[in-house]
Amino acid sequence: MRAAGRHPAALLALFAAVCGSRAEVIDDVLTSVSRGASFLEQQHEHINLDGVVGFVLLQAQLKEAVRTWPHSDPVSWAQRTTAVALVKRLDQSLEKAVAALQQIDPTYYREFEPLLSPSFWLLPQGRSSTDPSLVYVSSPASECYDEQLSDKCLTLLLGTWKMNGTPCIVTKPCRDTMTRFGCPHYSLSHQLLYFMIGRMRGCTNLLKGDTRASRANMTESSYERIFCSNMMKTNQDIVTDGLSKQMVDIFIENILICGLAGFPDFYKADWLQHLLRQQDEEVGCFGRDESFISQMIGDELLEQLQPHRRVKRREKVLPDGCSSHMTAVAIGALGGYLNHYLSEQDITKRPLS
């Protein structure tokens, strides 16, 4: 009886410890995001489109967090105040960054302009889980997609393939590429992104015209679950192998995209710590490599001599040695972690009046 009497108190102590720990994690995320916002303020003229999209995703996540912040205690409310201030800072910086993109590459800007609005990105309403039984038996070592084809397929979905273009067009090459099984790494994450962007654009029946009997019962959600199950296995392998520099970027990208697709099992606490460790404390970006600075200066000179030479978006290295792509995916993933921890803190999540 004595032990039973202490049981409620022990549970309360455990609950308090968990809530305190969660509040500390939210503090860590907000601190990291604030550093990222400072980086955007300083580098808004240099960040490429992928980089800006990452901050747009963060802004969408922050606005949702502010709207649904749990009614709990003064510490939580102070954190919400910090998030509100971050939203205002990002609004100003993103306006400048988007204007710079429009000037630097107006054609590319027009093709992907819809992705530069926080309202485009629909945050997950439901929750799904990955399934180890869906993992491919084997995957090729090399990527199985072409960046130019991927861009074309996305503009056909968005309706930006020409001025006032019809949206939600799915060609056979796009459908075959985006539903191919066995692809690794960036090919895999871009296959998932294709289905997600189609859903957010309001496209229905992306699989129309697929006459393969083996795919007769497949839905868009089926593909998303297969892709994220394989991306989960990729991330687990990356961590097991020691999170090498070469694999950090895809590791974080998988967290961002599958989290956004509604798979919260990607928001692992230890993966968050891996992510936070990639941030440069001095400038606030991710993936900083000072050895790239001299190389970048040479690339800039080459671009000035060849103004129409297009550098791949993922390979953009900024003047301070920062990776534009890794910064984008990391900052977007942090926004996902924030909403995940807030929803865990208060599963009722009633909107603020």
Rank of each mutant, 00 (worst) to 15 (best):
D346T: 08
W121P: 00
E315F: 14
T82H: 12
S187M: 04
G5F: 09
S138T: 07
V84A: 10
H308P: 07
M296L: 04
G159P: 02
R67W: 10
H308A: 12
S21T: 07
R314Q: 15
F120P: 00
A333F: 03
K233Q: 15
Y136R: 02
L334T: 07
C228F: 09
D249H: 15
R215P: 01
D320N: 15
R201K: 15
V75M: 06
D27N: 08
T234R: 02
S291W: 13
L94G: 02
A330I: 03
L11S: 09
T204S: 08
I255F: 03
W121I: 00
S93H: 07
L256P: 01
L116A: 05
R175T: 07
V87I: 08
N254Y: 15
P74S: 14
G287W: 05
K63G: 10
R89A: 15
C144E: 08
K349T: 12
Q79M: 08
K162A: 11
A141L: 09
R313W: 10
F195D: 00
K208S: 12
L149E: 07
R6I: 12
T160E: 01
V170M: 07
Q273F: 08
P264Y: 03
M200S: 09
C168H: 04
A37S: 12
C285V: 03
R313Q: 09
A97K: 00
R89H: 15
V84H: 09
T68S: 11
A37K: 00
M196C: 13
C322Q: 01
E282V: 14
S294E: 15
S119E: 13
Q125P: 01
V170I: 10
D151I: 01
G336H: 04
S353F: 14
A9E: 13
I238N: 01
L62S: 04
N217K: 04
V317D: 02
C322M: 05
I238K: 01
L206Q: 02
N254R: 06
G262M: 05
I293G: 02
R309L: 15
L14G: 06
V98P: 00
V248P: 02
Q345N: 10
R35E: 09
P319F: 10
S294L: 14
D265R: 08
M326Y: 07
